[in-house]
Design a protein around this nucleic acid. Structure first.
Lengths: 350, 350
DNA sequence: TTGAAAGCGCTAACAG
DNA sequence: CTGTTAGCGCTTTCAA
């Protein structure tokens, strides 16, 4: 009694009064824990009078259930970890890319809609942060080849959700875009507009997507018997990518079309082209893989290949939640289509 | 025995084997829960031999402590909620703004460094998501005047961390930038470069920052006896802000300097100025409040006023963690300085 | 219709 | 130096 009355605080009574617990409400209302719990959760068969009394008392006392205790009972925390693998060097830079910004926010929204919250985690070195977190699963967006995170997670028996590279592994689910189809569609479009020397700019990355893009480009060029010209950007970010674009533009073979598969500000690419004496679209057809909304507002507007981060997120979370709640009844993965948004920058004016 | 042996799964044994618990390790190692717990946590005084045996057994069995049970014991979940209030209409758009992208990632990084994980929450309608989450505190970035979220959180006795508008409220902590000082510094700079008609473009928002900027601009203009010209953007986003910039540029009074206090792509502003016959910086000095890295890569590079999201995050998390762990010993709030990055767009060429 | 009691998995008093 | 025991706050059989 005295112990309870003296509070559960440590030394020197803390400024925060002890939280109201279920048992406090029960005592106050002259009911048992069970009854109050049932009343609040709408379960069990209680008389309306009792139910109302319990609810009223809880409200009056400002009772809020302890989420941790509920989780322990339920066996799940409804928490999903979220890591972007691509930026292992700068573990937090990813949010500055419109693609990942949209992917992240759409993922969080889709998860929350189904009652799961997203926890932001860093890529790269600090593996093991997740050890102290009650994560029901972890999403690894665009893992790079040398990142052990997927292995570690799988070894720890935490369900992993990532790209198609994990296909077939137990406990692993995936969602991916069809990089090859997207590249083919784009190059076909450029060819139809008259391009004969389409150059490709992409970052020097081991992401499944970038590897797939490069392979598809080479394949397409070979099949069409058209020359291939690839310039690798040393790193992500506007600076290095713009430099790579300039390299492509000033190379021995003056390209007549440019496909930029790296997050870069479209207006900056346009400006770079102008600086080097190209008129877009007359001298150069331009397509950027980008979710950047500035593409619509440039002069001319820039054609973009959208990877549909919102669709990826929605499809992915749906699959993940199904797997989590029904013991992977459905398929382990799903492919989401890309969208080529044709605008003036890749339309022949003739 | 039989009960334990038959597993704790529901109907039709699930594909996932039951997780290894502390008690399983203890039994296997022929020790007690306590001993294994102490061995794993490095607490207590155990013989090296026993400690090693416990650790080895745990490793061999793939034991991972149940984070939820630990949280329940500890009384804290080391989880911090994160909401951006400004985009109540589009609860997830904020990540697409470089400022919030950096603020968010820096906050997550700073929190994680101190052992706290960040949970992404949506602004606007869906209040109450946090009810089922064991949040130790919630960060509300840039709340808008009509958003009840801060009130709700405080009423639920969840520590809130936000901007200075909550100063003095118990349980509320804040970090803020000195909007007035920043505006004065910028306008002084423009005046020193010869500007006499500095126009201001900012979104029609009730954020403390935007309200403060407008007030400071008016005050400065009055004090300097210079004309004031303010154009409000109807909404956030590149489209509406560029339109507002164009309005400012084509207004009755042709401005000789422009201060854009809204997230907008700097190259787009530059292009808009050119479209309307301005040469930057000869006819128009330009300063954008922006964290967008494209500002460095334009022709000319654009002067930016950086709100220092990384510093805001770092200072904020430090304060918050101190408050959480020491019963708010330190101050309730802190002011972080802004940084004017002067580049060619606001430098008189004469 | 309501209540007592068990137990989720862990840590920390307190005995031995 | 090690083990037994009592909870953290909740939900849920099961018995009254």
């Amino acid at each position: 009694m005295t112990k309870a009355a003296s509070g559960r605080g440590g030394p020197s009574s803390p400024p925060t009064p002890p939280r109201v617990r279920l048992v406090d409400v029960a005592r106050e209302a002259g009911l048992s824990k069970t009854t109050v719990s049932a009343a609040l959760n709408g379960t069990g068969r209680l008389s309306p009078a009792v139910r109302e009394k319990a609810r009223e008392t809880a409200r009056r006392m400002g009772y809020r259930p302890n989420a941790t205790a509920r989780q322990l009972r339920a066996g799940r925390a409804r928490l999903i970890g979220y890591v972007v693998g691509e930026f292992a060097g700068a573990p937090w830079a990813f949010l500055e890319s419109p693609y990942f910004a949209q992917l992240t926010s759409a993922t969080a929204a889709a998860a929350l809609k189904r009652g799961y919250a997203l926890v932001l985690l860093p890529a790269g070195e600090l593996h093991g942060e997740w050890a102290d977190l009650p994560l029901d699963a972890v999403i690894v967006a665009d893992p790079v080849a040398d990142d052990r995170i997927v292995e570690d997670l799988l070894a720890a028996r935490i369900p992993v959700f990532t790209d198609r590279s994990v296909e077939g592994r137990p406990g692993a689910h995936w969602v991916d875009v069809d990089a090859a189809a997207a590249v083919r569609e784009t190059l076909d479009h450029l060819k139809a507009q008259g391009a004969r020397r389409s150059a490709l700019v992409l970052p020097d990355s081991t992401t499944r997507f970038h590897v797939g893009v490069l392979a598809a480009y080479r394949e397409w060029s070979a099949a069409q018997e058209l020359p291939e010209q690839v310039v690798l950007a040393a790193a992500a970010g506007n600076g290095p990518v713009v430099r790579a674009v300039e390299d492509a533009l000033t190379g021995a073979d003056r390209p007549d079309a440019l496909l930029v598969v790296a997050e870069v500000s479209p207006p900056l690419v346009l400006e770079a082209a102008r600086r080097h004496g190209y008129d877009v679209p007359d001298d150069l057809l331009l397509v950027c893989v980008s979710e950047d909304t500035t593409a619509v507002h440039t002069q001319p507007p820039v054609t973009t290949l959208s990877l549909g981060p919102r669709e990826v997120a929605e499809a992915g979370i749906e699959l993940l939640v199904a797997a989590l709640e029904e013991g992977h009844a459905g398929p382990a993965g799903v492919l989401v289509p890309t969208r080529l948004q044709v605008r003036a920058s890749s339309l022949r004016t003739s």
